[in-house]
Every structure is written in structure tokens, then in C-alpha cells.
């Protein structure tokens, strides 16, 4: 069979019915279907766009009026702050949990597994309501009333972080497992300590497989924080809700929030590309 493969180019070098030695011109196949379907989709998209812009019920003037009001911006600020804090704390706790799950000690492994199992099983909404009502279970902690101790924002941070950490733990664990075992052995053979091996050798290489799902989680968290509106934390969504409860301009105000979410998500996606390129250095895909 190898001889067939070797023969093939010799045959095609002189195509039948083409006597001259000059290379024949290559004409690509016409892709009529692709052109037609693209044209149809573009037309449909344009129609949809026109209807969205021209339908007065969208009340774009109201959207413009509220887009930069201080109430909305304050809500946006809280959403961004909450996202950043929850991601940072969630990944810190998640990395710790991943280390537990990868430990040689079966008890530590079990605890790591149990945490991930529990907090992935609980709906985030239930968890938020649970922490919000924790005072019913523990009215007083260390001589302080629990209700005074935990503001709605604190409840939001705790609930979202514990939830995030369970997912982050799996992302980090997957990343660590993706690193070749030989890397760890080489580090051990060079006498590098456990902390240094993790920080300097394993995690930087694990980052390549951690960053894409982490970017996903970041964007998910940004929008996911909107759930804290149920416990009256004044994030972006709750801020516009406060306005439309007063003015009944539900759709344009939801559009205000949506546009902000889209805007921030777009910025984060660009950021993710840069981070991915940074951690791809030294690999085949690096430029």
C-alpha cells in the first residue's frame, strides 16, 4: 500500500488531456449554496435589526436617558465589585480544595470531594436564601447578633463564593491533572519543595487548561451575580428594577442592564484572549 501512495503524485503530475508541461490553473469549486444561505441569513438579520430599532415599544430614548444615570452606574459598580471579589475568593478557596482533592491523604481527599459534592448540588438561589436566614439557625455568634453581622452584601459574597469555589476546584484540579507527571518528577529530582513545585512548575502549566473555563466562569459569574437582587442587594439588575417599579418602563430599563452586561462581557472576552496568549508561551501555539 505505501507504493500506491508514492505512485499517486506521479500520476497526477500529468493530468489526462493536458499535454503541455506548464502547471494547469486551479479553479476552486463554486459554493453557490454557501453564498445563498449567507445572503438569506444577512437579510433576515437586517430585518430583525430594523424592527428592533424602529419599533417604538423598545423606547430607545428611555434607554439612552437611563444608561448613564448614577443609580445604574452605582449598580454596575457593585456588580463589578461583587464579580471580582467572588472570583478572587472563589478561586483561592477552589485552589485549596483542588489541592485537598489531589492529596495523598484519604481524609483530606474526602473532605475536598464532599465540599464539591455539597455545594454543586445546592441551587445558588437556595443557598443565598439560606445564608440570608442563617439568623434563624444561629441567632447569636460570639456575642453578636447574626443579623447585624451579615449584611445582604456579605451574604451575597459568602453565598456566591462558596458556590464558585466548588466549580473553581474542579477547574483547577482538571488543570493540574493535565500537567505531565514527568514535570513533577523533574522538579522533585531537582530538590524543589512541594510549595515551589506547585507554584512555579505545576500551576503555570495548568493555567493553559484553567484559563478558558475560568473565563467562562468569570462571564457566568458577572451575569450570575444578578441573582442577588432577590436579597435586595443593589447590583445592576436590582438598580434598574428599582427604577421600573417606579416608572413602569420595564423593557427599556431591562435593556439598559442587558447592554451593560453585554459591554462588560465583551471587554472580558478580549482580556481572556490576552491571558490565554500569555500562558501559551513556550508551547506550539505561541506566537
Amino acid at each position: 500500500m505505501p507504493s500506491d501512495i508514492l505512485d499517486a503524485p506521479a500520476v497526477s503530475a500529468a493530468p489526462p488531456g493536458e499535454p503541455d508541461r506548464a502547471a494547469p490553473r486551479i479553479v476552486p469549486r463554486r459554493r453557490t449554496g454557501q453564498w445563498a444561505s449567507a445572503a438569506v441569513l444577512l437579510v433576515l438579520l437586517a430585518l430583525a435589526l430594523v424592527s428592533v430599532v424602529r419599533n417604538p415599544a423598545f423606547q430607545w430614548d428611555v434607554v439612552a436617558d437611563y444608561f448613564l444615570t448614577s443609580a445604574v452606574l452605582r449598580g454596575l459598580g457593585l456588580t463589578l465589585w461583587l464579580t471580582a471579589v467572588v472570583m478572587a475568593l472563589g478561586f483561592a478557596l477552589g485552589t485549596l480544595l483542588a489541592v485537598l482533592r489531589l492529596s495523598a491523604n484519604p481524609v483530606l481527599r474526602g473532605i475536598g470531594w464532599g465540599y464539591v459534592w455539597l455545594f454543586r448540588s445546592m441551587p445558588i438561589l437556595v443557598q443565598l436564601l439560606f445564608w440570608f436566614n442563617i439568623g434563624a439557625l444561629y441567632p447569636v455568634v460570639l456575642g453578636v447578633k447574626t443579623v447585624d453581622l451579615l449584611s445582604p452584601v456579605a451574604v451575597a459574597v459568602i453565598g456566591l463564593t462558596l458556590h464558585e469555589a466548588a466549580y473553581a476546584a474542579e477547574v483547577v484540579r482538571g488543570g493540574v491533572l493535565s500537567v505531565d507527571k514527568g514535570q513533577l518528577e523533574a522538579a522533585q529530582a531537582l530538590g524543589l519543595g512541594a510549595g515551589r513545585r506547585l507554584r512555579r512548575i505545576v500551576l503555570p502549566q495548568a493555567m493553559r487548561s484553567i484559563v478558558p473555563p475560568a473565563g467562562n466562569m468569570l462571564i457566568g459569574t458577572l451575569k450570575g451575580t444578578s441573582i442577588v437582587s432577590v436579597i435586595a442587594v443593589q447590583d445592576l439588575l436590582y438598580s434598574v428594577q428599582l427604577v421600573y417599579h417606579r416608572t413602569y418602563q420595564v423593557i427599556p430599563l431591562l435593556l439598559v442592564a442587558t447592554l451593560w452586561y453585554v459591554l462588560v462581557t465583551s471587554v472580558l472576552s478580549v482580556g481572556q484572549r490576552h491571558v490565554e496568549r500569555h500562558y501559551a508561551r513556550g508551547t506550539a501555539g505561541a506566537r
Binding site: G182, Q183, E185, A186, A187, A189, P204, Q205, G282, T283
Partner: peptide, 13 residues
């Protein structure tokens, strides 16, 4: 004790 591996195991990053 220096150790040289079959697959080099250089740190790629």
C-alpha cells in the same frame, strides 16, 4: 544526585 530523564522533562513554560 543529578537525574536525566528519557523524556527530558524540561519545564516548557
Amino acid at each position: 544526585i543529578g537525574f536525566v530523564f528519557q523524556n527530558f522533562n524540561l519545564f516548557p513554560h
